[in-house]
Simulated assay, not measured.
Amino acid sequence: MTTRQPAPLSASPTSALRVLLLPGWLDSDTAHWQTRWEQRHGDQRVTQDDWLWPKRGDWMSRLEEVLLQDDRPAVLVAHSLGCQLVAAWAAHSQHTPRVAAALLVAPPDVERDDMPPQLAPWRPIVRQRLPFPSTVVVSRDDPYCAPERAAEMAAQWGCEWVSVGDRGHLNGESGLGDWPQGRALLDALLART
């Protein structure tokens, strides 16, 4: 596991790839950087049938379905529960070679006792090493995951680990806007692949 500061790149390597946005529990609202990326960059949101009571198997099936709709390689850009989705899906799918990389932002610690009951089906956390290059992005004051637990998940998944300081859950309430720092992290990840 390595920690580094993001460095913006001038050219975006995402042009030949599909960027699949994987929102977390309750979806990403209009102020969320994922929604803004969808509008600004044309990234594709993977829409789930049930955002309120998410079932891990259902979400994994939906990701697989969307991934198989197009032959182009995909990069997965996950927020919150979407990070747990990537780990669970990658541990079971035969189609992981279709994924070029994954950016995992603010993974929640779904094993904590104070998590909402809707997230109980996501226990235990899948800890298998991811078969594609990945970066975990965390905030030191994320209310849903202590930095130590995020670092532990990143290490188990075989991911690079990047801290962006005190930014909450890195969601719409964090005031990130279009979050150019996150896009630079995505570009840097793809440049490595």
Rank of each mutant, 00 (worst) to 15 (best):
S163I: 07
S28M: 00
S80E: 01
R127M: 09
W161Y: 12
E38A: 00
W25T: 00
E160N: 03
E148Q: 08
A90R: 04
G182D: 01
P143R: 15
A100M: 12
W157T: 03
A11R: 15
M153K: 14
R140S: 05
E160L: 01
V137P: 07
P73A: 04
L186T: 04
S80T: 08
G168M: 11
G168N: 05
P124W: 03
E65A: 14
L130F: 10
D178P: 02
G182F: 10
L9K: 01
S80P: 13
Q118W: 09
E148H: 14
D27W: 07
L20E: 03
D178Q: 07
A146R: 15
A31N: 13
N171I: 11
P6A: 10
D27S: 09
P133S: 11
P124R: 04
G24M: 03
D49T: 07
D178T: 04
T193N: 13
T3R: 15
G24S: 00
D178E: 03
A101Q: 07
G158R: 15
T47V: 14
P73R: 03
P108M: 02
Q5L: 00
A146N: 11
Q118G: 04
D27M: 05
A101N: 05
C159F: 05
L104W: 00
G42V: 05
R140K: 08
V86M: 09
Q94L: 13
R112F: 07
A100R: 10
S163L: 05
D50V: 08
V136I: 10
T47D: 07
S139I: 06
V99P: 10
S15M: 08
V137W: 05
E38D: 01
A31T: 08
L103M: 14
T30D: 12
P6N: 11
R62D: 01
E111D: 12
G158F: 08
G168T: 09
S139H: 02
L68M: 13
L9G: 00
H169N: 11
L130S: 09
Q39K: 15
